[in-house]
Design a protein around this nucleic acid. Structure first.
Length: 419
DNA sequence: TGACGTCAAGATCCG
DNA sequence: CGGATCTTGACGTCA
């Protein structure tokens, strides 16, 4: 089983994807952006492999205006060496990558120009995955589209437009239930008609269920039957509700107990789970570590090294509890560890504790920093104390110091990247 | 016509 | 001038 996250990682330097608006598009600007984004993708791939995250969705923004006439570049030829090199890393790292055009790629629209743009967009996505030399288990996830008051006709349009797609797209295309128009049973029916693998999305299903008598595990089993060996392991999307926001919103992080309840009831490890969650790689690592079959405390120690100063600024008490928890090197207290972590992050920080944590981090530099750097730090800290500054500025300063003095341990710390 | 979702770029404001 | 904050863009459907 692989568990993964979508498009971007938090706290991993040099992995941001850049773009520009249409009125600023020039060939040289596009070349610059593509080069930047490919370098960022390579960093992301390396991070994923190093951290044993073997499922990853590549951002559709990799090639700005990749499916638009605004971008006439043959980017797959110009950057062939980069694609090849990244592709080798993906393959050697046993990483499974996918892509997911947004809700605006609508293959079943009654408007031919909308359909044409959808086709162009699917071709673009297939071109990216082909350029990386991935196999047909590297998928493109698509929603069915609109209903237009006549669902049967809309489905027919989807079917006839699907049949006209390039083989390079067809071999990768998979379809997903959405939260408004097409329930999981709708999507399965389309799948039976066309032979397309189905991705079950639990949150969309919660919001837009098809049969109240059947639970989500029933539908996951049904979806399983749509996957052929050439498609790779079945994929599902898993997310949790953000209860404080509108119904379809994804949660900030994955609640481990809720995830484990799902995982246990699922009772299978022969499928891949794509998490859709705001904190991305953080939650992916949590779920991966909680479901490891081979476990060692070093994994948790590595996580702790990234989280410790963030925990400290929320709760020194829990900070100490986790330290004690990890003392016994013969155990793997993964649930206690993440429970404490979740508990700490839920604690509202106070100014005093934030300053305390910042001073801990400053400890790395007190012997090497220049007087100016020290003065700057103390000034920023004082501004936080009297309410005129922000901790963000303090952290930005500490991040710059970490880079300048090559404090690797700190540079990997989530503390520097979280607000 | 605005909401939906998503992320940065761009624009503007502030000290 | 730099940094923080607000607005826009880019997409299509639906209320």
């Amino acid at each position: 089983m692989a568990i993964g996250y979508a498009c971007l990682a938090i706290g991993v330097p040099n992995t941001d994807q850049r773009t520009c608006t249409s009125n600023y598009v020039t060939e040289s600007r596009l070349l610059e952006l593509i080069a930047h984004n490919l370098a960022a993708l390579e960093e992301l791939i390396e991070y994923n492999i190093k951290n044993e995250i073997t499922l990853f969705r590549i951002s559709s923004d990799l090639i700005p205006f990749g499916s638009s006439p605004l971008n006439p570049l043959k980017w797959w030829e110009i950057f062939k060496d980069d694609f090849d090199r990244i592709g080798v890393k993906i393959k050697q790292g046993h990483l499974r990558v996918s892509m997911h055009p947004g809700q605006y790629t609508v293959l079943n629209s009654p408007h031919p120009e909308v359909v044409q743009r959808a086709v162009d967009d699917l071709n673009y996505h297939a071109q990216v995955l082909a350029s990386l030399n991935t196999l047909s288990d590297s998928k493109i996830i698509l929603h069915i589209g609109g209903v237009y008051d006549q669902k049967e006709l809309a489905i027919d349009r989807f079917a006839s437009n699907y049949k006209k797609l390039e083989p390079s797209v067809k071999k990768r295309l998979i379809i997903e239930n959405d939260e408004r128009s097409y329930s999981i049973s709708d999507v399965l029916e389309i799948s039976w008609q066309l032979g397309i693998p189905v991705v079950f999305d639990n949150l969309h299903h919660q919001i837009h269920p098809s049969d109240p008598k059947k639970n989500e595990f029933y539908w996951i089993e049904e979806a399983r039957k749509t996957w052929k060996p050439v498609d790779g392991p079945q994929k599902i999307h898993y997310s949790q509700r953000n209860t404080s926001k509108k119904s379809g919103s994804h949660s900030a992080g994955i609640d481990l107990d809720e995830f484990m309840k799902f995982y246990t009831e699922l009772g299978r490890t022969d499928l891949d789970i794509m998490l859709e969650v705001k904190d991305k790689n953080f939650s992916a690592l949590k779920c991966i570590n909680a479901t490891r079959t081979i476990s060692k405390i070093g994994t948790l120690e590595l996580e702790w090294s990234r989280y410790k100063y963030t925990v400290l600024e929320h709760s020194p008490a829990i900070y100490n509890q986790i330290r004690l928890l990890l003392n016994d090197k013969t155990t793997y207290p993964v649930f206690d560890f993440y429970h404490l972590l979740e508990k700490a992050l839920a604690v509202q920080w106070s100014i005093g504790e934030r300053i305390n944590a910042a001073q801990h981090v400053w400890g790395y530099f007190k012997n090497c920093a220049t007087d100016t750097e020290k003065k700057q730090f103390l000034k920023l800290l004082e501004e936080v104390e009297n309410g005129t500054g922000s901790i963000k500025k303090v952290k930005t300063h500490l991040l710059r110091l970490s880079r300048n003095y090559e404090q690797k341990y700190l540079m990997d710390s989530y503390y520097l990247y979280l607000d």
